[in-house]
Design a protein around this nucleic acid. Structure first.
Lengths: 158, 158
DNA sequence: CCGTCTCAGTTGGGATTGCCAATCTAGCTG
DNA sequence: CAGCTAGATTGGCAATCCCAACTGAGACGG
């Protein structure tokens, strides 16, 4: 092992967007999470469906487990030996918002000629759902009216 | 010019998340958009505030202009020569949702000990806003109840 | 108990991308 | 015309990525 996967030597940034991208901003990371959200959990399943080189998959899984996005579990099917699978943690599930935001952006501004491959809906009613901003009073806000403002820790830079 | 920045030779993926990541998934791309949302538009401003190598910034700006996320404008301040600045298009503005989703995820699961650098609020009322799912009937949906399902073009793979 | 199969990776190498420092260019000012 | 500044480009080196081949361990057949 030349480079241990659990050595997080990266600098901690004060900006949470930057910190998030340090965890899931590498190539393939978010696509692995997307497929995990679909229920894919095995190495070969992810490798074959994503078309990712197996060494890169191996490295990403280690990084994502280390970051707390995935959890590695051993399992054993009857008449099979023990194998490993990867499952989203609560933290990993929470990336659903990021992925659907990316999906809506792509569908809006760079649609595939073949149509949409994935839709978003409420599990209970089956009605279509989309991403938006909600005020603390529970009201739905217009996206253009929402701005990012400096927070309490913005003293140094923001 | 060895590799022209405007030759988009990448394969078009059927998955909109994958296509989106081809446009803004490279290192630094989303951070450039974040700073552009704060109103930064000049090369040196972005370079100095992000700490990005200038050759990479140059390449990313070209890619983002090519993708339609940024628009290159010339400007001239009094007593200065003509210079260029980079401004978000409508398509670029729309990435605000993705960035705030990443920000909320980072604040929730990987907070900075120094506190939050950036907050999200409604420009009119100043009340705090957060990302959520909204049904077509206008109701706010619980995030755990929202799922991604195969769409019309999912025949090949999804 | 020997050979074969499959899953889950690891390893070797070459290509690509990213990083850093130095340099360049055009127009301004003195 | 020498020097300054914004907006880059270039060269060299390091890290990352990709592909193909290989490994290791347990199940299974003979």
């Amino acid at each position: 092992m030349v480079t241990p996967a659990n050595s997080r030597t990266k600098k901690e940034h004060h900006c949470s967007i930057h910190r998030s991208l340090d965890l899931v901003g590498e190539k393939w990371s978010l696509l692995i999470v997307r497929n995990a959200l679909r229920g894919e959990s095995r190495f070969s399943e992810l490798r074959d469906n994503l078309g990712i080189p197996s060494d890169v998959l191996s490295a990403r899984l280690a990084t994502l487990v280390d970051a707390g996005v995935l959890e590695r579990r051993s399992y054993r099917e009857p008449g099979e030996r023990e194998r490993y699978s990867y499952h989203l943690t609560e933290q990993g599930q929470a990336l659903k918002t990021v992925l659907i935001a990316l999906q809506e952006w792509g569908d809006e501004y760079n649609p595939s000629p073949g149509g949409r491959v994935s839709l978003t809906q409420d599990a209970a009613t089956g009605q279509h759902a989309s991403i938006g901003f909600i005020g603390d009073d529970g009201s739905v806000l217009d996206s253009s009216a929402v701005t990012m403002v400096p927070g309490p820790a913005a003293a140094i830079s923001w």
